[in-house]
Design a protein around this nucleic acid. Structure first.
Lengths: 211, 211
DNA sequence: TACTGTGAACCTATTCACAGCA
DNA sequence: TGCTGTGAATAGGTTCACAGTA
């Protein structure tokens, strides 16, 4: 946190991808050429990113995977596995319920500690290994449980309202599964993972490469 | 398709977001300042993007929402609602099953027409309003059903294998819900929507804005 | 030899600033 | 007046090319 230079946005996103890649990479060493093959990112740019992350440990035959992974983690300010960051799920419909049950953050520092839904019967019918609350309790539970992040999986027409309440309750980041574009206060980050937006991005990308 | 200039990647992504915003916007007119408020994107940049999309219909008191939306759609090469594009879901675990049941592409040109899982009991136990197949049928069903896009929701350790088979079967775009970074052939686009990657991106973004 | 690390060149994207217009 | 549209200025990102190294 202290040594952090400003890593530009574009580099940050590539480094986060690299971190994911390294986390599941089954080898001891890796070169920029191998990373290029796996990610499609130019190898010179990969080396620049790694250099931006402050890692100088590459030797002439590649990077040591564990060292590189740790350097990237530190440069991005990602928590260690034992520095738990608490999350909640807002919206326990089909998608929200599935996300809460399918162990999406297993083996990561993120931990889901609460679920919310405005329909009381959802919170009563479902079960999880963390408590489920009616949405009315959000403003109380979120600060109390030190929840910093939320997964938003409500219906589109409730999305902005819920985002407002999450932000007001102190949530600092929202993973947005809805199709709604969220307006949030400064200091709150949104990452859009709507499948429809993703597909539209894919279609647009394919069009423009097919000239 | 014919008139398409190369819209740069960054602009394309913002325009796709703008398209989503306009699709649910409940007004007749909109200005670049309002769009800035809702998306956080600088208003001058929004006007540049719109201009890049080839739309010159703005009058002194804003853009007509329907016209702008249609222009953005056309510029990105997105299909009209009646030009259906066929998709499949690969992986019918909790998440895949939820995605298939929760009407994620309702009111969009995308239509899910098949589901695949390597576990026969998943394809037999679940039901949907489209057929479910054992993964062994992928190579036959995908070309036959003219499937262009896939939602990948298998376990991480099967992700690369399934991506290979999807690409070999002719799929041109993959919405990747797994934590695995996918290596795909040229001409295949991947959009990563892993919740863990999304959260890591959020944490990294928050760090670097808190200097 | 096969890689990393990096300055310099190049290219792309963003912001500024203002003319034009309803 | 309050907006759009856009050339010019600036900032930022990417690629090149090569010295340095195990």
């Amino acid at each position: 946190m202290a040594d952090m230079q400003k890593i530009p946005e574009a580099s940050r996103r590539r480094l986060a991808l690299l971190f994911a890649l390294l986390s599941s990479y089954g080898g001891d060493k890796i070169t920029s050429i191998q990373i290029q093959r796996m990610t499609g990112i130019d190898r010179a740019l990969i080396r620049k990113d790694i250099s931006l992350a402050g890692f100088k440990g590459g030797v002439s035959n590649g990077y040591k995977v564990q060292d590189l992974r740790e350097a990237v983690r530190a440069a991005l300010g990602l928590p260690l596995p034992d520095q738990k960051r608490f999350c909640c799920i807002a919206g326990l419909g089909k998608l929200g319920a599935a996300l809460m049950q399918c162990g999406i953050f297993d083996e990561s520092p993120f931990k889901i500690v609460a679920g919310f839904d405005s329909r009381v019967n959802r919170t009563e019918v479902l079960s999880a290994d963390f408590p489920l609350y009616p949405a009315a309790k959000m403003e109380a539970v979120i600060p109390e449980s030190k929840i910093d992040f939320a997964i938003l999986a409500v219906e589109d027409d409730q999305a902005q309202l819920m985002a407002d309440r999450l932000a007001k309750s102190g949530v600092k980041g929202i993973v947005n599964f809805t199709g709604q574009v969220l307006e949030v206060p400064e200091g709150v980050a949104v990452e859009n993972v709507s499948p429809l937006l993703a597909l539209n991005n894919i279609v647009a990308a394919l069009q423009s490469s097919a000239s």
